[in-house]
Design a protein around this nucleic acid. Structure first.
Lengths: 215, 215
DNA sequence: ATTACTAAGAGGCGAGTAG
DNA sequence: TCTACTCGCCTCTTAGTAA
């Protein structure tokens, strides 16, 4: 609902804020928004009738101001986006799981290992610790908080290896990184983490033990 | 451009953030967004083709993830709104001007005066100081920073008096308020400010003197 | 220069339905 | 169930043009 008016509403907002009157013309607006004079003219009339904007026509063009309803539409949209972008999850709880040993194989490949060493800040132990996170959505917002390092894929004569999304994190205050291979299919909620040492030994972890990953 | 996809894009963002995969179905999405299964299905295909989302169809429904382009669209829109809503202008420069004495008349009306006393925190001197602001847009963002008090209009036997947007501010560290009558037509950039005392006397101001209004 | 009407064509929407 | 196609309807867009 009202999405078709977002362009004009935001244009007013960014130019004169929530209280100001924007003196412009349908031609200028059309150019700014990649539309036509006729379409803008019609939309402004509609928006006026809907109570989204206050609109005054004068000899130089039109004077536009956000009206309550239009302002609320923008505010709601802003609130949604703010939640999405600014939600800060500082830590996440997981349970240790056994993987299939694939992580060990991939991490140990020089094509990945060299990039980890150079860009993540440690030479990873050739193996991954798998863990399960109950609240997948929360995990995603946790990842948004972490510094992302993009490990690029590579090719050998035999096959292609995909890229790996890598997020710097900490486990028990040890430097670590959550790794999400572009192509790998884990069951939902299963993630992998790498660190300089064998985490199972170093932290004395066994399956189903609780772990906390932090920023 | 792409406004028609904002609903779906924001829905993904708020549910699983910028990295997550959202497991849903076209029916669920349609209900959540007030649309129909067919329309959502078609839009998802379009969005996939446009590179806005990564889309996987499975037996339970669809799995959706923001793709670079879709994420950038959201980020741009967010940036625009953030600028519009969060721009913080702490002070504004103006030059003293002479008004037409209307301010004096209106402020002194009991219908307004009582509200000022009760809600703005001082009994205003019956007169306004007019000032001119070069950067109208900046002034609007300055106003956004101030506490707004809405002074409602009233009727007498003779006529109707409109409402006055009132913003608490300071001039030379004195409590004051910028007043913008709903109906009054000032030339662009001309504003009025009220305070407990006669500002022209108290601050020894004459026309064209510089003043600074602060939060 | 403006805004905005008209009319025709483009394109989105959703009921029905296949797979 | 699910997705997604077809097709009729209707809305939106835009060129032309009036005021």
């Amino acid at each position: 609902m009202y999405e078709r008016y977002y362009g004009i509403l935001s244009h007013i907002l960014i130019n004169v804020g929530i209280y100001g009157k924007l003196n412009t013309s349908t031609v200028k607006l059309a150019k700014a928004l990649g539309s036509t004079q006729q379409t803008i003219s019609r939309k402004l009339i509609e928006m006026g009738n809907l109570g989204l904007i206050k609109r005054e026509v004068n000899v130089n063009g039109v004077s536009l101001q956000l009206d309550c309803k239009g302002l609320n539409i923008l505010k709601n949209q802003y609130r949604i986006m703010k939640t999405g972008f600014e939600t800060r999850v500082k830590s996440i709880k997981g349970e240790v799981r056994s993987g299939l040993g694939e992580g060990r194989y991939y991490v140990s490949l020089p094509g990945y290992m060299e990039q980890f060493k150079k860009r993540v800040g440690f030479k990873p132990f050739p193996g991954t610790l798998n863990f399960f996170v109950e609240d997948y959505e929360r995990m995603m917002f946790f990842l948004q908080n972490l510094e992302e390092i993009f490990i690029t894929g590579f090719k050998t004569k035999e096959r292609t290896y995909g890229s790996i999304r890598t997020f710097k994190a900490k486990i028990d205050n040890l430097k670590a990184a959550v790794v999400i291979p572009e192509r790998a299919r884990h069951p939902k909620g299963i993630f992998e983490i790498i660190a300089q040492h064998n985490l199972r030994n170093k932290l004395k972890l066994k399956d189903n033990d609780k772990v906390v990953i932090t920023c």
